[in-house]
Design a protein around this nucleic acid. Structure first.
Lengths: 201, 201
DNA sequence: CAATTGAGAATACACGTGTAAGCTGAATTA
DNA sequence: TAATTCAGCTTACACGTGTATTCTCAATTG
């Protein structure tokens, strides 16, 4: 037996998703992506799209899920690395940047749809980012901060890192190390600041 | 004489700009805004649009200019206020949030097109934000930091404040004060952190 | 006053879109 | 083997789009 029907279906589904990701370049946002373009790229007829997704929004949500996976990948990778020693901040930022640049388009989607126009997508993106922040909050709490302070720290750090990530994606290769170094410095400010302010109290 | 021809032209131009801003709500991004929709809202024929703008992109750039004006308005207002005493950080954040909520749609454009799909727009938005950062950098340098450190601080602060601004725009009114308080706290972290790290050296 | 200018409108075109309806043929099932 | 299922295709339609062309007619100019 060559390939079962369900295997083939899964394959096509994957082709649609990959086609969408491929098209999500610098010049193309998800909102401006049309069903026909996606199916053309995936090599199927326009109407066949509906065998896999209710509409473009559903595809969008699936793509955001992919983002979620990638974010978790970052966390795992970073944890693994800094458990073997080295600066936590430096390692985390480097890992984030690395994964970002390996999956540029999926991150473009994340950055763009965060302030996007489709409510469902915005919500989904927000959920993924919140999850990321909460993970970081937990870590910071374990270092000995109270919940509220930890959350503020985590949120600020994520804002800075995401900002750097977006900047890096559009920057030329030469400037990327600068962006990265600055991000590290900025996270250090936040960490040190939180420490200062909470020892004073 | 009722109204001169050039006055009328300026009026129509303004009508187009205002129509565009009006339509840039939560559900409509600039990219998904069509020439015909704008002219319909402005009360002119589609083709008359070209008497004022070469294409939609040129209108977009004009809108970004409006953003620039608003950003400068924030800086002036904040400066005026904290010269009369009070916390610089608190006053600045409050002013930013206030102006953001007074011009929600123009800021939605700013937030969205920052990671947008049209190169010209992205560049323009970036220029405005850079200007904002540089202004802040100057201020921080005057407090006694060296250029590089001041810039890193400024950039981080802007990232945090813009993040809060975007969050606040989509948040319900009840949560906005929380967002604002958190942003203030986060900026304090950054300021304190920079202070700590630079006194240590 | 007569001539020119130019903002705005009307009409028309080609094009890309989402998706409804119905068909085909191979994989699956009984 | 015969019946069923269902991924994918073809065709077709109505609709919104950007914009080229051509017109109108009031403000401006000489």
């Amino acid at each position: 037996m060559a390939i079962s029907r369900s295997e083939q279906k899964e394959k096509t589904r994957r082709a649609i998703i990959d086609a969408a990701i491929k098209q999500l370049g610098v010049e193309k946002s998800f909102a401006s992506l049309s069903l026909r373009e996606v199916t053309r790229e995936a090599g199927i007829a326009p109407t066949s799209f509906y065998r896999h997704f209710k509409d473009m929004e559903e595809l969008g949500l699936t793509l955001v899920d992919e983002c979620g996976l990638t974010l978790r990948q970052i966390m795992r990778k970073a944890r693994k690395r800094f458990k073997k020693g080295g600066s936590v901040i430096r390692t985390s930022v480097k890992t984030f940047m690395e994964v970002t640049e390996t999956n540029p388009n999926i991150f473009r989607l994340l950055f763009h749809e965060r302030s996007g126009t489709t409510h469902a997508l915005r919500t989904a993106v927000d959920r993924e980012i919140q999850f990321f922040i909460v993970e970081l909050t937990d870590y910071i709490q374990n270092i000995g901060y109270e919940k509220e302070a930890a959350f503020a720290q985590a949120e600020a750090m994520v804002a800075v890192v995401f900002n750097a990530g977006a900047e890096s994606l559009e920057a030329k290769l030469g400037q990327r190390t600068d962006v990265e170094k600055r991000a590290i410095q900025q996270l250090r400010y936040i960490a040190a600041g939180a420490k200062c302010l909470h020892l004073t109290k």
